[in-house]
């Protein structure tokens, strides 16, 4: 257990160091660090509606982040959550606009299933390339992500464009108000139950099923798994499908929740932040929940900060980047230690 505590402590330390480094850069650039810090706390917790906004951003980060955790468990790095999120939202939108008169629960259910299937499809193509030809999934999932963003752009600027829209960016028509599971704050009991239920299910899948244990073995040593009679390709495809499904679902929750319509390039970085969320969460389900709340708060603060300081919003993205940078180094170092010469057993 002390090993586990140590890992938690080192991750917390890493986040603190990121804060300090960011503060240093802001200070050197002439901003008042105290104001910025209090702005972050206001924007994520204390200001009116800030806590709600934190939870609103936690939801997509958690769903996509759990997808990343699933991928990692079997040794795959699915960083294309953004695109899977977009195509999921698009599919739910198509279902909802195409079946406006349908019974509400059924339409929502169909929309979510469509989103899950779309996310799966977006992730299964890189997954197939990976298990069949060994194509690096980091590249393919990332490329698929751009295609997903273009699909969204095409739909919102083309077939599903709201002709009466006045905004500067193209947006779709709104879905009927009855389909929404939250108001525009993005938080409701339904949404929280849904996300909490998904987290519990993912935990059960990873830690308490044969499939989860199989994924662990495949992720740690595919050669040994093959000798044990495990169908490594099937496990790989299943992992990619599940991972993409969660990102797709996040897209549907976004549409039925705070969004109500889709705007070209909405929430442009949740899918990528979610990768950092999973890494900071140490690739465990409950760690990812905590990390998602933390990054949800930061996201909320980023939107709030321009109100209290003259800080441009991208300045806080610096903090994101810093955490991502440090957590990646730590992750590589742990991997090196795990496989490197220092890990050799005491042999005689």
């Amino acid at each position: 257990m002390t090993g586990g505590l140590q890992r938690v402590a080192s991750t917390v330390l890493l986040v603190v160091v990121s804060f300090l480094l960011t503060a240093l850069i802001l200070w050197v650039s002439g901003y008042r660090v105290g104001t910025v810090l209090s702005g972050i706390i206001q924007g994520s917790i204390t200001a009116t509606g800030a806590a709600t906004s934190t939870i609103r951003w936690t939801i997509p980060l958690l769903l996509i982040g759990l997808g990343v955790v699933i991928g990692f468990r079997a040794g795959f790095f699915n960083i294309g959550g953004q695109g899977q999120f977009y195509v999921g939202a698009c599919s739910a939108l198509v279902v909802s606009l195409g079946w406006r008169e349908g019974p509400v629960p059924l339409v929502i259910m169909c929309g979510m299933i469509a989103a899950i299937l779309a996310g799966m499809a977006w992730s299964l193509l890189p997954g197939y390339l990976r298990v069949q030809f060994g194509t690096d999934e980091v590249l393919t999932t990332l490329m698929m992500s751009f295609i997903g963003a273009l699909v969204l752009q095409y739909l919102t600027a083309g077939p599903l464009r709201n002709p009466s829209g006045t905004g500067q960016t193209a947006a779709s028509e709104r879905i009927p108000e009855a389909f929404r599971i939250t108001d525009s704050s993005g938080v409701s009991v339904t949404a929280l139950l849904l996300v909490g239920g998904v987290a519990v299910l993912v935990w059960l899948l990873l830690e308490r099923t044969r499939f989860g244990l199989t994924m662990t073995l495949v992720g740690r040593n595919p050669t040994m798994a093959r000798w044990q009679g495990i169908d490594v390709r099937r496990v790989g495809l299943g992992t990619f499908a599940l991972s993409g499904a969660l990102s797709g679902l996040a897209g549907a929750v976004e549409l039925y929740g705070p969004g109500a319509r889709l705007v070209t390039g909405f929430s442009p970085e949740v899918g990528f932040t979610a990768v950092v969320v999973a890494l900071v969460g140490m690739l465990s389900v409950w760690g990812t929940v905590v990390a998602a709340v933390f990054f949800g708060g930061l996201q909320s603060a980023i939107l709030f900060l321009p109100i209290v300081t003259d800080l441009p919003p991208p300045a806080l993205v610096l903090l994101h980047g810093m955490v991502a940078f440090l957590v990646t180094i730590k992750f590589r170092a742990v991997r090196r230690r795990r496989t490197g010469p220092a890990a050799k057993p005491v042999a005689g």
Binding site: T216, L217, R220, N221, T223, M224, A225, W227, R338, T339
Partner: peptide, 9 residues
């Protein structure tokens, strides 16, 4: 060591 066991598991 590589085919019989998973070293880190």
């Amino acid at each position: 060591n590589s085919e019989g066991i998973s070293r880190s598991a």
